[in-house]
Computed example of a mutant assay.
Amino acid sequence: MNAKKQEMQHVELVIGRVLQVGVYISALVILLGIGLWLFKNGSGYSGALPTRITPIFHGVLAFKPYAVLMFGIFLLILTPVLRVIVSIYAFAKEGDRLYVVITTIVLVILIIGMAIGYRG
């Protein structure tokens, strides 16, 4: 087996590992949030629940159950985005410019969609 093929197999394994680790970590964070919710008997907020990233991060630091749950969901959403980034690297290493361009466009669309969702 040549070196380039071995490297591509390694990159494919890395892509798979990124997805696995991302799902496992987000699931653990979500389970932690559920456990905190049950232990603290509520969301940790008396009024409106935070929907923006900064207040959610502050809530995570204060171990507020709702914020921890939302952070777990954020990590779950971030997982395929990281996969796209690793794919761009893999296609670049492979020398496949067309797929680098296409995958970069997909990444830009994901970022624009997240930005619109954040503002909306």
Rank of each mutant, 00 (worst) to 15 (best):
Y45T: 07
I77M: 00
L61T: 12
A67M: 04
T104Y: 00
I53D: 00
K40L: 10
Y99N: 15
I56L: 05
I56G: 08
R83S: 07
P65M: 07
S46E: 14
V100C: 08
V100G: 12
L61K: 03
L49A: 08
L75P: 10
M70N: 05
I77A: 09
Y99K: 14
G59F: 01
L49Y: 13
M70S: 08
I88G: 10
V106E: 10
D96M: 10
E94Y: 03
H58S: 08
G72I: 08
S43P: 00
V60K: 04
P80Q: 02
S46K: 13
V84R: 12
P50E: 01
T104E: 02
P80C: 11
Y66Q: 08
A67Q: 11
V101W: 03
A92C: 10
P55H: 09
Y89W: 15
K64P: 02
I56F: 04
V84W: 14
A92P: 04
S87V: 01
W37C: 00
R83P: 00
F57A: 09
V60Q: 12
L61Y: 02
I77N: 00
I53W: 01
S43D: 03
D96Y: 10
V68S: 04
G95P: 11
L78A: 12
L98G: 11
G59M: 03
I73C: 03
Y45E: 07
F57V: 09
L69H: 02
A90R: 15
P55C: 06
